[in-house]
Amino acid sequence: MGLGTKSPSVHFERAEFVRADQAYSILSRIVTATQVDTIVHTFLVVDSTLVGARALHEINVIGTMNLLAAAGSASSPVRHVVVKSSTLVYGSSEKDPNTFTEDMTRSAPARTRVERSLVEAEGLVHDFAVDNPATVVSLLRFANVLGTDIVTPISKNLSRRLCPSIFGFDPLVQFVEEDDVVRAIEFVTRERIPGLFNAAGAGRLPWSEVVSICGSRLLPLPPINPRRAIAPLIGLGLFEFPDELEGLLRYGRGVDTRRLTDAGFEFRYTSAGAVQSFIRALRLRRGSGRTPASYHYEHDVEQFFRHSRSVVHEP
């Protein structure tokens, strides 16, 4: 069963969809009515350009709080909660260790809105896990996502001729491919693995290399207040430079994924592979003039297969 505030953009094959917001009473009734045993929470917003400050807090913190409250009621049928979070909770600071393991905490307090709300939401998940020891809780922290379809501030920047960077800094960044994101969520859900996991493609690469793989060029911004330097261009929508990107473009971020790979998960893409996957899909979109066909569920065709007398049903 799917739950969201917007109608799904593709037809679901077997799942049902409910359009609802994250109000506690609705969620609680849905949980009780359907007797769901697994909740996969993927609605945390990790891109501050998508929603305003208030909405970000409402969705990430209040939404998570309501969902977990609904899942943690006395007669709850829920046995497994999977939460999709981001490595943004580690932040980006000069005091950071080169590689964060799941047990390390960020070196400096969260300053950007999105990081603050994610830290708070993860705190709620942690409390839920402590209060409900019988429920399996899996929390996945994903590195910056790139891939064939996803649109993020980074992917928008990389798809342009010039891509912002901070002068004199060439940080090491890590990416995870969108297919690996789905596969990792599926993996922990299917295997019911409790715990906290970092998820990122193997290896990391300098920002300049990411930009040159994408065939773009660096636009170095002044190291002091880089955002202000291109503020008019951000206003025109030519560049994306949310607060949470500034730290990344200065100091980068690296995470250790051995815990997830030791549990048996195999990433299909390396960090550089994710960049490659993104740029190839972009080139195809540009070259073919229309969205390339991937698998889509066709409702009418399904009905035809199911009910038409022309389809030969083998015994």
Binding site: N98, L172, R183, G203, E209, I213, G254, Y269
Partner: peptide
Amino acid sequence: APEPVEDPRLSDVDEWG
């Protein structure tokens, strides 16, 4: 099943930079 995807690295910068 995961099949390895090529790694298009251009430089030899390691994880320490």
